[in-house]
Simulated scan of single mutants.
Amino acid sequence: MPKRLSATAERHADLVRTRLLEVAPTGLALLELAADCGLSRWQTRRALVTLRDLCAQEGWPPLLWTRELGYHFCASEPELEAWELTWVSRELTQFRRMLTGTLGPHLQLFPNSAWAEYLTAQFRAIESNLEMAAGYGSQ
């Protein structure tokens, strides 16, 4: 079932989409995009989230953010794979920090915590999958 989007968010997403299509293949930084569309920073962020949902629903090219181009639509397989590998690596780091910085100490303080044991097992499974994806992507 498609996600329900507010009419205002859809209108703002359409403004952002139109502006990004006008400057393609380059992109725009958040503040440039906000100024060009006449939106606040918050409205622009909300429009970008909505636009990502619309891209998925409509089968449009994905909306990416990179340091070099800012927000832009991407149809290049190598760029998409590089972006996805970066995302996987970043999330892997976050999961490892959660395991070592929060769940580990939780289990040391409360060794019989069923919740912490459950989360640790789930996070270890996710960590393993992310490691495999990161290793596959770096080949």
Rank of each mutant, 00 (worst) to 15 (best):
F73Y: 15
T86C: 04
R97W: 15
V88G: 04
C74E: 02
E79L: 03
G101P: 01
T102R: 14
N112E: 15
H106W: 15
L69K: 01
G101I: 02
H106I: 09
Y71W: 08
T86N: 04
E68M: 00
F110N: 11
L69F: 03
L80G: 03
T100Y: 12
T102N: 06
R97A: 14
M98D: 09
P78C: 09
V88C: 09
F95W: 15
E84V: 11
E84T: 11
E68F: 00
E84N: 11
H106E: 10
S89A: 09
L99H: 06
G101Y: 01
F73P: 01
P105I: 14
L103W: 05
W83D: 00
S113L: 07
L69Q: 02
L109D: 12
A114R: 08
Q108D: 14
E91K: 11
E68C: 00
V88T: 08
S89C: 06
E77L: 12
Q108T: 13
W87S: 04
L85I: 12
W87T: 01
H72N: 01
E77M: 10
Q94E: 12
E79G: 02
L109H: 14
V88P: 03
M98F: 11
R90Q: 09
F110W: 11
W87N: 04
R96I: 05
L85R: 02
E91V: 13
S89Q: 13
T93C: 13
E81K: 06
T86R: 02
P78M: 09
M98W: 11
G101R: 04
R97P: 06
M98E: 11
L103M: 06
P111H: 06
G70Q: 00
G104W: 13
T102Y: 15
L103R: 02
L109E: 14
